[in-house]
Write a protein that binds this DNA or RNA. Structure first.
Lengths: 365, 365
DNA sequence: AGTGCTCGTTAATGCGCATTAGTAATGCGC
DNA sequence: GCGCATTACTAATGCGCATTAACGAGCACT
């Protein structure tokens, strides 16, 4: 029998002797007087008593030892060995905490966080924004997220190719906001269509027949959905007016002039709705034009906002419209992601927006 | 020689046959006709040509193979092998934030996020709500942060004992805000002393000689530092007035009355400064009292604010004072933490505040 | 006493990669 | 033609954990 030649041991150097590193399962095992395997069995005990049984006494010794040492499993090792580590990623290409608080994803993150915590997941924030500096963050920028069991994506600047790759690899991904162009991409979104329809319905109930939508020149789903809901609402109210009821402006501030508003009103229009965007330009322009046209808001014309007003208009009367349930959106996203991670075929429906009565809509004179 | 008994091979099952998983280095190696080690060497080539040399031809073959297969490294394995997971924790309690970050901790987090991203770290968010996992935050709640390579702590409600434990274990921890009571705790903070001194110096330059500080009844470092800077500023201006120049109020709203202000002004006081706190009570009270005393702000008395004004006073004239560079504070905290994680002995100095000229201070009449 | 069980625990293994000792091949000098 | 250095690559190892076959002890029943 050939005796294998004794070789020195290559591989990593031992850990730096000086610093006491985080405790490993091996240390817990030593302290508890059991094997590393036992520690793993105890600490990763699955709810369903499937695995090998462990006596209560041993279990307690292990738990005590783990607590005493402050043991925390290494997510990387966990992920490598078990293909999961109870970590959910949140990836955003724009900074997750933008300087402008109002546009931040924070309300959304609150929902995400709550739901994730409730399900025993921790959150890892992957930031794509500044990592590359000049943007060229390399093709593997997104692959960092694979450290987590699944990942939530925020923002519309998520590179298609990378996302597609993740999806194709079967990696659990959920996109915030409707995004159907990518086959197999799971997403959660607010139901702008229904909410917008509801706003129109409300105006119709108040007796309005001629209603105009002011929107920006953008083809994002958030915009087109609102328009669709608006038109559906008109149809439902029995006043289908076709696309001429929509004012699509590249620059609402310039195009929505007092004169134009006055002309429309003179032509029989009694209500306007504006879409919400990051800048709030449409709503802002509409408001200004109406005021400068010398029209009083709930009295002469009714106004609606398909979304929430910009923060700096907090002082103004609350506009009739709807609020986006960012909390619930976040929670829904996590639920969906958790289902994907678990291999289930969950299907999270659109999240409904909340109608807001406000003070800018009144019965038609 | 004892022949070790032949045993069956335990361990993981082979990967589920169905799904074609993404390629590993081994597959790339096979395709390129080299060993896995070579693939690793090629793909993780460090800039400094330290490692073993690889011929250009081999390198190219490997790169081609990797590209053909669409190879993407597994971050979990990468981090496991590298013995660090490039994760930084951010621990905060949602409920309350210390005075230094009260307005919003976004600016701080922005800095954290950017700096972390720039250094290749990802962030793990721990908050009061999620830290308990299944809800109740047990005594070992803080233990969870060990998941990360190091952790940033915000707020003063971090349990001392737990923090101490982490520090004692050599776990890299950085606290936001001066915190010297805990031996060995690294922290970053704004230099309130210098900034407050500068505010006083500015007033002195304008000719003010009798200046009064309005502060709340709190012994937080943020408060005492401001007072110290204030007194140092007086001394530097050659008008040391001792502690009687400080109005320490448990309830500024009640104690800083118009009468009192009028009396002080009658007694020769020409300028007031207030500390910034989470509530902004001192500044608010001072402002109100001055107005109700019938004094015009820059004309009759000059005012200074040792910090930034509360958000709801955004409409008022910008107060003379200083701004806390929250953004840079966040970045500094990450730099410090990264140094600790790397085992370096970095020492992040206090971060300077920015003087703000404002419109509430004028030359003494 | 032997057989067949269940229960509790452990040894051994691999996840995918980085690292490094070792080896084979080649060049170089004398 | 023999060291010796250099170059190019590979084998072996371990990171920390989960998994599972195997093992030993205890027990009941032939």
């Amino acid at each position: 029998m050939e005796q294998p030649r004794k070789r020195a041991k290559p591989g990593r150097n031992p850990a730096p002797a000086g610093r006491t590193s985080r405790p490993r399962q091996a240390e817990v095992a030593r302290l508890a007087g059991v094997s590393q395997a036992t520690v793993s069995l105890v600490l990763s005990a699955r709810g369903d008593g499937k695995g090998p049984a462990i006596s209560d006494e041993t279990r307690q010794r292990v738990l005590d030892a783990a607590r005493d040492l402050g043991y925390v499993p290494d997510p990387a090792a966990r992920r490598l060995a078990a293909a999961r580590n109870n970590l959910l990623g949140v990836f955003s290409f724009t900074a997750t905490f933008p300087t402008d608080v109002q546009h931040s994803y924070y309300p959304f993150l609150v929902g995400v966080e709550q739901e994730a915590a409730a399900r025993g997941y921790d959150l890892v924030l992957f930031t794509g924004s500044s990592s590359g500096g000049a943007g060229a963050a390399g093709p593997d920028a997104l692959s960092r997220v694979r450290l987590a069991d699944g990942c939530l994506f925020l923002g519309r600047h998520v590179p298609r190719a990378e996302l597609k790759r993740l999806v194709a690899d079967g990696y659990p991904v959920v996109h915030l906001g409707r995004r159907e162009e990518l086959e197999g991409l799971a997403w959660v979104g607010a139901d702008y269509v229904s909410a917008s329809r509801e706003v129109v319905a409300h105006l119709a109930e108040l007796g309005h027949r001629r209603i105009v939508l002011v929107r920006e020149d953008d083809d994002a789903p958030a915009s087109t959905d609102r328009q669709r809901g608006f038109l559906e609402g008109l149809a439902a109210a029995g006043v289908p007016q076709g696309p001429e009821a929509v004012l699509r402006c590249a620059d609402p501030g310039r195009e929505i002039t007092p004169e134009r508003v006055r002309a429309l009103v003179a032509g029989g229009v009694t209500a306007f709705v504006a879409e919400e965007t990051d800048t709030g330009a449409a709503w802002r322009a509409l408001n200004t034009a109406v005021r400068e046209a010398g029209l009083a808001c709930p009295r002469d014309v009714s106004l609606g906002l398909l979304g929430s007003p910009p923060a700096d208009l907090a002082g103004e009367p609350v506009p009739m419209g709807f609020d986006i349930p960012r909390h619930r959106l976040g929670a829904a996203a996590v639920r969906l992601l958790a289902a994907l991670v678990a291999g289930e075929e969950a299907d999270e429906p659109l999240v409904a927006c909340e109608f807001r009565r406000g003070r800018t809509a009144a019965a038609r004179l």
